[in-house]
């Protein structure tokens, strides 16, 4: 049986992890590769790097990180942040990323989604959607790290990118992100039910029940979290044991 995935996400800026990572025995908690190895050993189902590097000059550092991670971790790796062209994608895939997530560039240039799927296959095209509630049962997508409103309906957009070849949706609720009050379940469920591809829920996880709710009530196929894992509040194993106890099928290898 296919298992629900638990995905820790690391924010990387100019080659360093921002938002601290608190693992016992880590020599350098700011080194993304060390963090990746720790999560690999802890039984994470996938790992996500979000490159929030400010200057374009430092973009090359993420390629080096991806390459070193892929040498040491034998689990799927998704990389996002600042991806604008299929050439950006190609570099990340060649460095060892399995999937690349595209956010703003897919909104401004929908053809990029089609081009990426045709070139590399849908399985490595993840479309990241940042959405915010604008009315009951209605959500709008935001770009540029959630700063720019677009007027585009999140559900319409999700359907559109899937039709263009997106293989997975990474959905972040702007309303919930950082609040630790749980996923935006109505949003997650509405989007997950609207598309035929897997959906990763993100934004708002504060405890382990939130992970369960993302899968069971939100209909997500994977749950992504950052701070609850980074700060050592919970381990990946604790998260999975809790999910399993609540009837969610997870991998315990």
């Amino acid at each position: 049986m296919l298992k629900s995935r638990v995905i820790p996400c690391l924010d990387v800026k100019d080659g360093r992890v921002v938002k601290g990572v608190n693992f016992v025995g880590l020599r350098d908690a700011g080194d993304p590769v060390e963090c990746a190895i720790a999560y690999d050993a802890a039984g994470a189902d996938e790992l996500c790097f979000l490159d929030i590097t400010a200057s374009h000059e430092n973009r090359g550092t993420i390629l080096d990180i991806v390459q070193r991670t892929a040498e040491a971790c034998f689990m799927p790796l998704t990389v996002g942040g600042g991806v604008r062209t299929t050439e950006d994608m190609r570099k990340l895939l060649l460095a060892g990323a399995d999937k690349v997530s595209i956010n703003t560039a897919a909104v401004t240039n929908r053809q990029l989604v089609r081009e990426a799927a045709e070139k590399f296959g849908s399985q490595c095209v993840v479309i990241a959607i940042d959405a915010r509630s604008v009315a009951p049962g209605k959500w709008e997508i935001f770009t540029h790290g959630g700063r720019t409103a677009t007027g585009i309906d999140a559900i319409d957009y999700a359907r559109e990118v899937v039709a263009l070849g997106a293989g997975e949706i990474l959905l972040t609720s702007m309303d919930k992100d950082g609040t630790k009050t749980g996923f935006d379940i109505p949003l997650t469920r509405a989007l997950a039910d609207a598309v035929s591809v897997p959906l990763i829920a993100s934004g708002g996880v504060g405890n382990l029940d939130h992970l369960v709710a993302g899968i069971r009530e939100g209909h997500a196929t994977a749950v992504l979290a950052a701070s609850i894992f980074h700060f050592g509040e919970f381990t990946i194993q604790q998260a999975k044991q809790h999910m399993r106890a609540q009837g969610v099928n997870v991998r315990m290898d």
Partner: peptide, 10 residues
């Protein structure tokens, strides 16, 4: 069930 079949299975 979603397509692709994506993730960990036995």
């Amino acid at each position: 069930l979603k397509i692709p079949h994506m993730g960990w299975n036995t």
